[in-house]
């Protein structure tokens, strides 16, 4: 029987110091864990804290290992498994460039409206759409744009937060 592979979204609060991202990424590559998505940005400038959101997959034993290994890194303050801890929100932002003219261009704009993607740049032959949403929604929209002249995509990776009043 194959062990069940689970997908987990993990939030990690770290000191924003040089090399901290390399430590986290090195941990994943060095120990052979998967990274499906990883985002990082400073979230508290005063205390110099950054929040890393990592989506990873593995067996239950591997997921527990990943959390324990992350927690063991010296600059790590907190590790939380959002997938385990209950309802949470995951969002991603994408910038999507579509080039074309005529009917395809009109169709792209129409679909963007349906998907609530915003036009942030326009020329006579192209659009850049900005879209925020769940990963699946982004995938769907980008999939449609592929047939309508998609030339470039930039995605941020997932940012996630738990529902309710509790903090990380």
């Amino acid at each position: 029987m194959d062990p069940i592979i689970e997908k987990h979204t993990i939030s990690v609060l770290v000191d924003n110091e040089p090399g901290v991202l390399a430590r986290v990424i090195g941990l994943f590559s060095g120990r052979g864990y998967n990274i499906e998505s990883l985002t990082v940005a400073e979230t508290d400038a005063e205390q110099k804290l950054s929040r890393i959101t990592v989506v990873t997959s593995g067996t239950r034993m591997i997921i527990e290992q990943i959390k324990a290994q992350l927690d063991r890194l010296v600059p790590v303050h907190k590790v939380r498994d959002l997938t385990d801890e209950g309802p949470h929100i995951e969002r991603e932002l994408a910038l999507i460039k579509v080039a074309g003219t005529g009917e395809r261009r009109i169709e792209a704009l129409r679909l963007a409206d349906i998907f609530k993607a915003r036009v942030v740049d326009a020329t006579l032959t192209s659009f850049v759409f900005e879209m925020t949403g769940a990963v699946d929604e982004l995938d769907d929209f980008i999939g449609l744009m592929r047939q309508l002249g998609l030339v470039d995509v930039s995605r941020t990776g997932i940012a996630a937060i738990s529902k309710g009043p509790a903090a990380l």
Binding site: M61, E64, Q65, A68, Q69, D71, R72
Partner: peptide
């Protein structure tokens, strides 16, 4: 003393 040692190789 190291939580990451627990359940690493053997449950």
């Amino acid at each position: 003393i190291d939580p990451s040692s627990i359940n690493k190789n053997v449950a």
